[in-house]
């Protein structure tokens, strides 16, 4: 096979600058560095070890949910139920902890999350319903069940073993953050090297073509929602380990942060386009900006406006850059 550069129509060798523009991951890394540089200029405290450790800690819960959400968004769906599922699975964890012990209670919470997600997925796929509506319903059910099973009471005084998930370190990194990175590494492998991962992309890009080519589009679509539910429970576990108490309102609004992180990370809400590494940087950007606004003493009332504007700006920039990259 001859790869002469002079052949008409041959792709020119990509320069570094061009790769930075055309590759989502590179683009997001660049954007994250810009945000960090900007914040370190306005607040000298931003780049301190303490603050960075704090930011890592804050990125775990939303990062876990965003990981599951990415899979769903890649197939062109959306999961609005993740925050509520984090709430109800957290309550399952807290309420069964005395009876089942830590591993049993965590296992039951994860199972609950996965089953709820699979249920949403199955209803969406077999009922041919809009993901928005089904997961909106599941969002309402999840929050309601969190109150029902807890009697609207929070559970406190969780065992210290759970807290160690957030306080221990491994190789200098907080153990919860290390688990987050490992999860993203695994997801990256899955999405780029495994049949299931490529199937998710194919479904989002052109489900009909994937079906004609013999890919199991129903199975993988349902699994994506199941995985998103599972990750909600994982997030609930890390949330509980951080604050050592579980509240039925826990995880409230998490779905919006997760969707925002995925979108800032360059994924298309129409599916088929996006990257798990992009999502990770999207999570970092969200966390850094919120962290920076706190450092700058910006009123919480104004923070919503700031974050919202940044989401819109990021999506606009992404659209402009990716259009240029493809032209």
């Amino acid at each position: 096979m001859s790869m002469t550069e002079t052949l008409p129509g041959a792709p020119a060798r990509r320069s570094l600058a061009r790769r930075l523009i055309t590759q989502i991951e590179a683009r997001m890394l660049l954007l994250t560095l810009v945000v960090m540089a900007g914040l370190s200029l306005v607040s000298p405290y931003f780049l301190t070890t303490n603050n960075l450790l704090n930011a890592m800690d804050q990125s775990v819960v939303v990062g876990m949910v965003a990981l599951g959400q990415t899979m769903v968004i890649l197939i062109g769906g959306i999961d609005l139920s993740v925050g509520s599922l984090a709430g109800v699975t957290g309550m399952v964890l807290g309420l069964t902890l005395p009876a089942l012990g830590l591993p049993g209670a965590v296992g039951l919470a994860l199972l609950t999350g996965a089953l709820a997600g699979l249920a949403s997925g199955a209803i969406i796929i077999f009922g041919r319903l809009a993901p928005f509506v089904v997961t909106l319903g599941m969002m309402s059910i999840g929050r309601s069940m969190a109150y029902v099973i807890s009697g609207a009471n929070s559970v406190g005084e969780l065992p210290a073993g759970l807290g160690r998930l957030s306080t221990d370190t491994i190789g200098g990194l907080p153990v919860n953050f290390a688990i987050l990175l490992a999860a993203y590494g695994g997801a990256w492998w899955f999405l780029t090297r495994a049949k299931g991962g490529r199937t998710l992309y194919a479904i989002g890009s052109n489900a009909e073509a994937a079906r004609v080519a013999g890919l199991s589009i129903r199975l993988w679509s349902i699994l994506a929602y199941g995985f998103s539910g599972l990750m909600s429970a994982v997030a609930a576990t890390f949330l509980a380990s951080r604050i050592l108490s579980i509240d039925p309102i826990g995880g409230n609004g998490l779905e919006l942060d997760a969707i925002a992180a995925v979108v800032i990370g360059g994924a298309s809400l129409f599916g088929g386009r996006g990257s798990i590494i992009g999502t990770l940087f999207g999570v970092f950007i969200m966390v850094f900006i919120r962290n920076g606004l706190n450092l700058l003493n910006v009123s919480p009332y104004w923070q919503g406006t700031a974050i919202g504007s940044i989401i819109i700006a990021a999506v606009l920039a992404e659209r402009l850059l990716s259009d240029r990259g493809r032209g």
């Binding site: 049949k195 490529r198 992309y201 004609v212 013999g214 890919l215």
Partner: peptide
């Protein structure tokens, strides 16, 4: 366009799409 091409896939992966449907095992 509607039933054949996966627009976000490279030409190589489009070429491999039916192979992926035929392939057994978790890898590619």
């Amino acid at each position: 366009r509607g039933q054949g091409i996966v627009p976000d896939f490279s030409v190589r992966e489009n070429l491999m799409l039916a192979h992926l449907g035929d392939h057994r095992g978790p890898g590619l």
